[in-house]
Design a protein around this nucleic acid. Structure first.
Lengths: 142, 142, 142, 142
DNA sequence: GTGGTCTAGACCACT
DNA sequence: GTGGTCTAGACCACT
């Protein structure tokens, strides 16, 4: 599982993590039955307090996406009738859209021009893709 | 002075306001000696609590950007040796840049495509410009 | 850390607290790296509202004297080039001096004689010392 | 009438003024029937807003110490049965005493030594006396 | 009218 | 546990 967080940014860390786990479940990168990294391991990896990860997993469990099995680990559940994955995704994207629009407006109010923002978008996207592919290959090796 | 806030977004209201005031001071849209809207007036305008505005103005005062005069109002100060406006602007943009990049990455991780993000950027920007020009004209009239 | 506040006096509580924290930092009674009492604990101790302490700590943080770490506590920072401790102390004492002189003048204008003021000074000082030593010993015990 | 105020000090200006007027009435420096300086004149003299003086006079009138005669001025009233001057004085001194003690404690907490405070007391007192006698003579001349 | 301080209480996020 | 933000409302002092 790939999780990447950004600190010192207003989006809460816990939300960044939960969002990415959800997205990967929905995208099928994580399959039902898969075991998520342990709370302690993920906490160590992201240099975050253990309780923060616990909260994230609890939230995802409350959503019916995963199941925490005491002493065993946290496992992805098969999509049930209650878990409406499509609806979740839609909801998540809508929320994202609002945040994205807000930040674009903030940029304009800060005096940044649209082409500048567009450039940053492109640059960030290509960077992100490079990073992800690197991590993919490094993970295969490890 | 124009301030526009977005609710239900992770960036705190107070930070959104402070950011915009700073940007307008730095851009010269608000000149030294100018009087900011009163704490209560701005609170009414933005439908936020008085204390939220007080906090914003206090922070700006601590930064040396404005001065709160008891019973008179809050005034923009001339740039002093201590207040390095250029550095402030630079810092603010760097912070913004980090946030912008983080949100773009979040979008990609949510499975959004770059052209989609680009479309949202353009749409938001044109919307924002329309709104601002509307408000400008309505302010002139009032 | 010892903080003692006086109510029903014109100096605001928040200013009394900030003054004492600053003085103890400058005097080295609180060392860089030390953790100040938590916002809630100090509020409980002094029987003031949590927000009052938050404001004090925020001001001290803006001055560069302390740093508030989310979820951890508030820590004294090492003196930096920007924080001119000696100048701060000097400024604080000058401010104090003005207040002290003002109150002496007020006493005279109220018809109090100098020896009377001198007596009050001595009495208050010895009282204060007794109280402080008591608290010191009680703190050691606890 | 002599009034001297100190700015940037926590004792409110209005209270400083009221206190001095009361003290001078009680000391007999201002006699029943005497006319206080007009609101505007005193405001100009002390470089204070007119309303601040109005408030002070209203408060003194409420205490039964003076009477504001519309279009004529503000006059000192003879002590009535209702106005218990001695009680007022006592109350005022008690309040003063609390403030004095508080400031002495603040000084100690700031790291000032008692002899230092004593020196400041003496110096201020002698200064104040010199100033007052100067003003007395200059007032006689004017 | 203006800002300054304080309270009580809520809800959130990080360690 | 820790700090961060926000609300609602009070009372005070200066212009």
């Amino acid at each position: 599982m790939f999780v990447r967080i950004e600190r010192g940014v207003s989006t809460p860390i816990s939300r960044q993590i939960a969002e990415q786990v959800r997205a990967q479940c929905l995208a099928g990168l994580i399959q039902p039955g898969d075991c998520l990294p342990s709370v302690r391991q993920l906490a160590r990896e992201l240099v975050v307090n253990v309780n923060t990860i616990v909260r994230v997993y609890e939230r995802l469990a409350a959503e019916g996406l995963v199941e925490m099995r005491h002493g065993e680990g946290t496992f992805v559940l098969p999509p049930s009738t209650t878990t409406n994955l499509a609806a979740d995704l839609k909801h998540q994207r809508e929320q994202y859209s609002r945040e994205y629009q807000a930040i674009v407006r903030r940029g304009l109010l800060l005096g940044l021009a649209v082409p500048e923002l567009r450039r940053m978008l492109t640059a960030t996207a290509s960077d992100a893709k490079t990073q992800i592919s690197k991590e993919n290959s490094s993970e295969k090796r490890s």
